[in-house]
Amino acid sequence: MNHDYQLLYNQLFVHYGPQGWWPAETPFEMMMGAILVQNTSWRNVDKAIFNLKPFLEPEAIEKLTLDQLAQLIKPSGFFNIKAKRIKSYMEWFKTYDYDIDLIKKGDMLQLRGELLNIKGIGPETADVILLYALDTPIFVVDAYARRIFFRLGYDMPESYDAFRKQIEKELPRDLVLYNEFHALVVEHAKEHCKAKPICEGCPLFGLCARRLD
């Protein structure tokens, strides 16, 4: 089956419009959010970010003890594990003097490798950081993307990177497109392609094989 990813993107964009993602005020807040959102909902992340607001500078996070950080991010769940992940991430970030512009000058494949070497940073979290904080056009493969593409009838690879590369080879390396694509997938999963889908009014109805789990 021929998969038209550009058509899929266009249909979602026409229906939902620009999303203006990532939902964060600064790139650093976005980085913290990418770790906090692991295995939880945005509602819980918002509460954790609210608690973190007075400390949303790298130097301030660095000064917090592991326990202080864990208590602040408690609403996000798995807070002791996530506090350790944030501290590990900060050790890596410090090697670049907390300078996002300096990181952006690096080779993105090498940067992705560095991110994946941080304990607790998997491909999805690494790619979200690359896309939204470091301006790298990359497709984020999350559970929503897997659900939507499966239901459409697309037979996507099991492996994360094979799934990502299959889409990327068909689309232009356009930062805005990838930025919007991930956000639109998330929005569509919330509005229509839920665990129990709402097919009525779905902007992808004409493209969809309605292959349910």
Rank of each mutant, 00 (worst) to 15 (best):
L134W: 00
G17V: 02
L204E: 03
L171Q: 06
A133G: 04
K63D: 13
V185F: 02
K165H: 14
E158W: 06
I61E: 00
F50R: 13
L56F: 05
I121N: 00
I138D: 00
A162W: 15
E158C: 10
F93L: 09
Y144I: 14
K105L: 14
W21I: 10
K87T: 11
W42H: 06
H3N: 12
L184E: 02
F149H: 04
G33S: 09
I198L: 13
I148Q: 02
H15K: 11
E191F: 05
W42L: 07
P18H: 11
I100S: 08
E62M: 10
S159P: 01
D174G: 09
R210C: 12
Q71L: 13
M1F: 08
G77K: 01
L116Q: 05
K84A: 12
K105C: 08
L134S: 07
P203D: 07
R211V: 08
H15W: 05
P27Q: 08
I118P: 00
Y16N: 10
W21D: 02
P75V: 06
K190C: 10
L184N: 04
A70H: 02
F181A: 09
P137Y: 01
F181Y: 08
I118Y: 01
R211D: 15
S159K: 15
I100Y: 01
I35N: 00
R147H: 09
I103M: 03
Q19Y: 03
M32T: 06
H192P: 06
L134I: 10
V128E: 03
D67C: 14
G206H: 09
F181W: 03
P197Q: 08
I118W: 01
I103C: 05
L7M: 13
Q11N: 15
K119N: 15
K94L: 11
E124Q: 12
K74W: 03
P23Y: 05
H188D: 04
K47V: 09
L69R: 02
F139S: 02
V37R: 00
E91L: 13
M32K: 05
A143R: 07
D142G: 10
W92A: 05
L69S: 04
R43I: 13
F205W: 10
K104T: 11
C202A: 12
V45C: 05
Q6G: 13
M108C: 10
P172T: 09
D101E: 15
K63E: 14
F28M: 09
N39R: 12
L66Q: 15
F55V: 08
D4W: 03
V45T: 04
I198S: 15
K119Y: 07
P75F: 04
L115Q: 01
G201D: 10
K84E: 11
K105S: 13
A145K: 01
L184I: 11
V128W: 00
R211L: 12
L171A: 08
D99K: 04
M1A: 15
M1N: 12
F139T: 05
D4Y: 03
P54D: 04
F55C: 04
